[in-house]
Every structure is written in C-alpha cells, then in structure tokens.
Write a protein that binds this DNA or RNA. Sequence first.
DNA 1: CTATAATATTGAAATATCTAAATATATCGA
DNA 2: TCGATATATTTAGATATTTCAATATTATAG
Lengths: 104, 104
Amino acid sequence: MTLEEKTVPVVFKALCDENRVRILQYLRSGEKCACMLLEDLDIAQSTLSHHMRVLCDSGLVRGRKEGKWMHYSISQEGVQRAMVLLAALGDVETEEAGKPCCER
Amino acid sequence: MTLEEKTVPVVFKALCDENRVRILQYLRSGEKCACMLLEDLDIAQSTLSHHMRVLCDSGLVRGRKEGKWMHYSISQEGVQRAMVLLAALGDVETEEAGKPCCER
DNA sequence: CTATAATATTGAAATATCTAAATATATCGA
DNA sequence: TCGATATATTTAGATATTTCAATATTATAG
C-alpha cells in the first residue's frame, strides 16, 4: 500500500476542523438532513453547506438528495478507505538493522 | 467511544499537508534523522522543523534526540490511537427505523 | 407560472497555515 | 573556550481556510 500525497490530505481534511468533527459526531446517530444539523450546530447555513462539501469530498460522508432536502450520513466505505490509508502508515518496513544515517 | 472535537483535529492535521504525507512515507522505511529528510525533501530546514513539530504533536511521529541529531520514526501507538478515533466514526448507532427528520 | 422553502454558490473579511531567511540554541571536537 | 554543525525559533510574506451576508439555484405547493 502506497500513500498518495495528493489524495490523503483531501480525505483527512474532513477531520481537521472542530465543526466538522461535531457534524460527524451527530451523524454517528444516523442519517440527518441539513436542516437538522443547522438547528443543532449554531452556524450559518452557508457555513454548513461548505463543511458538508468538504466532508463529502473526503468520502467519509455521503449526501442523498430527496426533493429539496439533503440527507447526510457516514459512509462506511469511506471510513474503511481512510482506515486503510492510515493503517498503511503503521505498516513500517522491516527495520534495517540499526544502520546509522549520520556519522557519530 | 466519543470523538473529542478539540483533539481530533490535532491528530489528523498531520495528514493534511502534502509534505507531511511525504515525510511519513519516508519514515515507513524506518527511523530517519532530520538531515536525511532534509536531503530528500527539497524544503528549507526551518520548514522541515515546523512540519516535524506538527507530526510530533499529532502523536503519529516520535522524535529521539541523539547528540546533535534528531531521529524521527512513526509511533505505532500514535497510529493505533488515530485508528481508534477513526474507527469510532464507522461505528454508527443502530439506525432508528427510517424516522424522517423533515416533513415530506 | 409564481411564491416559498431548502440548499448551494459567491464575495469579502478574519484567521490560520505554509514557507523561507535570519537568528538562536545545543552539542561536539579541537 | 572557540568554531563548526544540527536543529529550533522568530519574523514576515504568500496562500489557504473559515465564516457569514447576499445572492443564485432547485424543488415543491398553490
């Protein structure tokens, strides 16, 4: 597994803002429509819309349009993909027997 | 598991910059000293130092001082902690049987 | 078709982040 | 102690992000 430098930031930017983490927290209790989130979060509507775009771009959240309402939910597949990317980090190659990188 | 809104961004900011992902990529082949990273990455020394601080603050990387050299390596514990945080997202509560949030 | 309601987009200000040069600190060897 | 080397911190400019008001778009009801 090789980490792609361009795509990894797009995925994890979702988790780099306090408000987006709060939104994800809400979504853990199931699919929510934007109006619901707007009630609970005390942010402007355009701000919510911006954050939902970032979340959807990351793949961690899925948006479903139903009439004039947008319903958002956590994407299991997206979370799984992110887990794989993160796990790749922990997957360190076999240590090259104490080879020193600098003269001592 | 409950996601803490303040701490989660600190952890995942590590993965939100292309250069930091490249650094993590390098560290996958084992512990590296700063001078090594500096050679490979084509960025200023102060820039590297800044990124290493962000990485260490996230807990994903551990720094070890040896004389005048700093050695950096991926922290298995840190990656594990991040995995737990991320997994909490996928752990969605039992869906409340299609309860609609908006009038239709 | 028109009015209304939900969401998206645009524009602009405030704030944060990235970058590098200059400087500071720490360690080692002479 | 002095000079050289590795890394950290400070400062400042460039860029990106967050936020909200205003406006645009889309869908539904009448």
